[in-house]
């Protein structure tokens, strides 16, 4: 048996079945782009689009983690505050290491490592409380959301933590430069998205997440280690928050108690718009990517036109979320 023959034989049949359920978010995205083009000639420019995508990539990377957590029937409300703490600690670590390591990439790399590590640890904490402590995910992460938020305020002493200017200069390119004209955040976002999609669809971990979210008992009786899979989703979420933050820090070079506020809701919104079910059991990583980009575009388009106040951004996003869920339910009954 050759490796590719049966796969290519099986794929087209499935790929061509276009229905509203899969095409919905894509359709909405296409409509938004069309709308943007008609409203402002600056919309469909390379600069504007890369700008929107680069900004969306933080939320996007976090939302990909959230896709796994939600698919497995969980929820993580702490990601916004977690991002703030990670940003704060990263800055402190880098500043603190300057005397020993000097100004340069080694400091930045150490800071990145600290960020990812801290994200993982935060994920372990959330996950352990939920799986071993048997506390509802909503409650645990509501708690850690408060804890992380107040920690960053404490670390910043109520103000702002700023990265040493010289280190910030070294670090800057990670946000502002790119490869072949594509900013690094977009590249990382794309890589994480593709990897996430593959993990969700083509690994046992992804399948186990869907099984657990769909019916935990069935998963247990099917020899899935429910607690471990759950724990892993929270660790993955934490690590991805770390990844998002290490792209975010060079953008402003600072962190304060307002860093990452409401990111958790934007991430969850992106996941839901993308067609992942909030009660778990079915997740789509590419849908999440589309969902996050939709949210980003709404803000951008509102800023580029003058008919409607951009202050209504939140309202539009809210309408889109509700519409998305309504549409998905409609087709399930039909």
């Amino acid at each position: 048996m050759t490796a590719s023959a049966p796969e290519t034989a099986g794929k087209p049949a499935r790929g061509f079945r276009i229905d509203l359920k899969t095409a919905g978010p894509l359709l909405a995205l296409a409509l938004l782009v069309l709308l943007g083009i008609t409203l402002n000639e600056n919309f469909f420019t390379y600069n504007n689009l890369t700008n929107v995508l680069a900004r969306s990539s933080f939320i996007g990377i976090i939302a990909i983690g959230a896709t796994f957590v939600i698919t497995a029937g969980g929820l993580d409300l702490s990601v916004g505050s977690m991002a703030a703490v990670i940003a704060g600690v990263m800055i402190m670590v880098m500043n603190w290491l300057i005397p020993s390591l000097g100004i340069g990439w080694s400091v930045v790399l150490a800071g990145m490592l600290a960020g990812i590590l801290l994200g993982g640890v935060a994920g372990v904490f959330n996950g352990m409380m939920i799986t071993r402590g048997r506390i509802e995910a909503f409650i645990v992460t509501l708690g850690t959301m408060g804890i992380f938020r107040s920690l960053v305020t404490f670390l910043a002493n109520g103000g702002t933590l700023s990265l040493n200017f010289q280190v910030a200069d070294v670090y800057r390119p990670v946000y502002y430069d790119g490869l072949l004209g594509v900013p690094y955040p977009i590249i990382v976002f794309a890589v994480v998205a593709i990897a996430g999609e593959i993990v969700m669809r083509r690994t046992t971990f992804g399948r186990h997440c869907a099984a657990i979210g769909s019916n935990e008992q069935v998963a247990r009786y099917s020899s899935i280690n429910v607690d471990n899979v759950r724990l892993l989703t929270y660790i993955l979420q934490g690590v991805l928050v770390g990844v998002a933050v290490l792209l975010y820090v060079p953008r402003l070079g600072s962190a304060s108690s307002t860093t990452g506020v409401l990111w958790e809701l934007e991430a969850i919104a992106g996941v839901i718009i993308g067609g992942t079910m909030l009660k778990g059991g079915h997740g789509r990583v590419w849908g999440t990517v589309v969902g996050v980009v939709i949210l980003g575009l709404i803000g951008n388009i509102l800023n580029l036109q003058s008919l409607i106040s951009p202050y209504l951004n939140g309202a539009f996003q809210g309408v889109i979320i509700i519409l998305a869920v309504l549409l998905q339910r409609g087709r399930r009954n039909g």
Binding site: A3, T204, R207, H208, A210, A211, S214, N215, Q217, V218, A219, R220, Y221, S222, S223, I224, G281, H282
Partner: peptide, 25 residues
């Protein structure tokens, strides 16, 4: 219904849920 099958999923993921290892390449 409660412990054996994932009712909202298709036949294939249900059949192989216990034995995903066999289908790894």
């Amino acid at each position: 219904k409660g412990k054996g099958l994932l009712l909202n999923m298709g036949l294939r993921p249900n059949l192989t849920l216990l034995t995903l290892k066999k289908h790894l390449k």
